[in-house]
């Protein structure tokens, strides 16, 4: 396939549709608004079709071979094949074996992994709150005031804690959001104008 078909035509379609969708957000022209809604429906259809290829990609990647972590691939493949088979046998997603298997694996493991956040935060706090210079001292003081302001014993610190959240924290947050907003706008513009092509593996020397 030539570069024109593989790269430039898709980039052209992306550019036209991108500007069209932006126009549909601002303009009150019924033709543009309606056709943009239709285009979004097409996006959902394409995503659904793409989803059909997913299991094949997973099979290709996880079919056991001599590498580390084969056992995890076997567990994944058992789930990928076992769950639809169980559904075909029982004919329902609310049947006891199907529901039990889902609840005792996915539902149990999800909060299990989430719980690790607590341990990770403690380890992170230990490093972040170690006083090495004036900056880390300020971080430490602010953190202690904030923590005290959130518990009944630290009631006197509540006004200062609230001030930290409402003034310096909000100021920093808005500054970051402003930069991010502009960054997203400029990046999107670069993509739509076709100048940004690093995501298509066109990388310079940096």
């Amino acid at each position: 396939m030539s570069v024109t078909f593989k790269k430039y035509i898709p980039l052209g379609i992306l550019s036209v549709l991108g500007f069209y969708m932006i126009a549909s957000y601002f303009l009150a022209v019924p033709v543009i608004v309606d056709s943009a809604r239709e285009a979004q429906n097409f996006s959902a259809i394409i995503s659904t079709v793409a989803l059909g290829f997913g299991p094949f990609a997973i099979l290709r990647q996880h079919i056991p071979r001599s590498r580390k972590g084969n056992i995890y691939s076997i567990v994944l493949l058992a789930g990928l094949i076992g769950m639809p088979v169980l559904y075909l046998i029982t004919g329902s997603t609310t049947s006891l074996p199907y529901d039990w298997l889902y609840r005792s694996t996915v539902t149990a493991l999800d909060p299990g992994i989430y719980c690790l956040v607590a341990f990770a935060i403690i380890a992170g706090c230990f490093r972040a709150f170690r006083i090495r210079n004036i900056d880390s001292l300020l971080v430490m003081v602010a953190a202690v005031v904030l923590l005290l302001g959130k518990v009944p014993i630290g009631e006197p610190f509540k006004p200062l804690s609230d001030w930290f959240m409402a003034v310096p924290n909000t100021a920093g947050y808005r500054g970051v959001q402003l930069g991010v907003g502009l960054g997203v706008f400029a990046y999107t513009l670069r993509i739509l104008l076709g100048t940004e092509r690093t995501w298509l593996a066109e990388v310079g020397e940096g």
């Binding site: 970051v176 991010v180 960054g183 400029a186 990046y187 670069r190 100048t195 940004e196 310079g204 020397e205």
Partner: peptide, 17 residues
Amino acid sequence: AEEHYVGAAVVSGDKTQ
């Protein structure tokens, strides 16, 4: 934050970006 998007232009090495 903003560096996240700027970085993408920097790694391209493209003066236009």
